[in-house]
Write a protein that binds this DNA or RNA. Sequence first.
DNA 1: GTCTATACGCGGATAGAC
DNA 2: GTCTATCCGCGTATAGAC
Lengths: 212, 212
Amino acid sequence: MVVESGKRRGRGRPKEPIPRSTFLRAAQGIFADAGFQGASMSAIAREAGVSKATLFHHFETKEDLYIEVLTAIASDLGRLVHEAVEDRGNFHERLDRLAEAIIRYLGGTPRAARLLLREFVDAGPFMNSAAALSVATVLDDVVALYQDGQDAGLVVPQDLRHLAATSVALHLHWFAATPVTRHLLGGSPFTPEAIEDRIREVKAQARRLCTL
Amino acid sequence: MVVESGKRRGRGRPKEPIPRSTFLRAAQGIFADAGFQGASMSAIAREAGVSKATLFHHFETKEDLYIEVLTAIASDLGRLVHEAVEDRGNFHERLDRLAEAIIRYLGGTPRAARLLLREFVDAGPFMNSAAALSVATVLDDVVALYQDGQDAGLVVPQDLRHLAATSVALHLHWFAATPVTRHLLGGSPFTPEAIEDRIREVKAQARRLCTL
DNA sequence: GTCTATACGCGGATAGAC
DNA sequence: GTCTATCCGCGTATAGAC
């Protein structure tokens, strides 16, 4: 999946600098497939269709590039969760909205779940950077949603932290643990039909999980 | 956590060969912390208290060592699941037994969940080896349990594959995604009290998840 | 069966031309 | 801003002494 730039770029300052998104897209792919340690800057440069030195010109270190890739995803999800969870409609509507928004995003961005879940397991450069705070915010948003439900007497009187953890696991694992999902499903979870099925199933599971 | 052998081992064939478990334990630790790619044979040898060459004498390649470590865990869990799920007692008893057995194992073997979940996300050497079949068996055991429940009219008429996936995610994520769990819990999930709490919460969640 | 020593490639990162 | 060429360390893996 090499970028087709038609003709090779020559030396010297070009009229059209390579957009940052080119590097980020390539990096997203390689990091998702190989992880932070397994990915090499050479592979990312190759994928982006530039030389390694060019890549190093745009990102001082591999860590910088990795953190930027993960920050973009965490920020997307953070926005999505915050909007879905906001105080419009009753508790169950908010719960449904949350599931649907997350699944459409993770289903439409196949690398996102793998990148995030791997980083959670690795406790790697991103989770050890300041940007990890956005993850904490998302978690707190989810807990707050359940808290609202509990206050309204709609949610079972159980530990909300375990409930929030299950919610995160539920969403990420399906799209990230591809061998497991493929074995169970017998196909890709990223087809449009599979995604619609998933939304239906998760909405039902999420309701039963917390409802009295 | 270096092995204390008292005095250094000399050259030549020793009277007491180093037990294989020494290498496996060390490898488990390093692989769990760094992942397959991130781990180095030097680090594992250091942790085991032997030279790199000695380690390579016992395991031809890093992959061999890694697969053996993961096979041991998958086999432990496979046995546990198979026993817990077997046809003793009613459906809810079997469900509770399953949760308790898995949580005690993962809680008492802090590296297991990380190793397994990371491998699921990586689709690495283990999942591409023949040994991965044991994972498929476990998944099928779980689906079969839910099928029994559905046949008995105790389980909600929903897609059992999504239910099984949630069950796996639920168990692994809590003990594997340590930064997330620690943020939510505000401490380690591996203390005896945290484990008992976890058993209680998961039993309740697992019931609500599938029960009519 | 374990050691020391080493081969060899590939990783991240840099220098300097254009 | 991008290129080619290169440095240097650490990775896996091997050879041969003991």
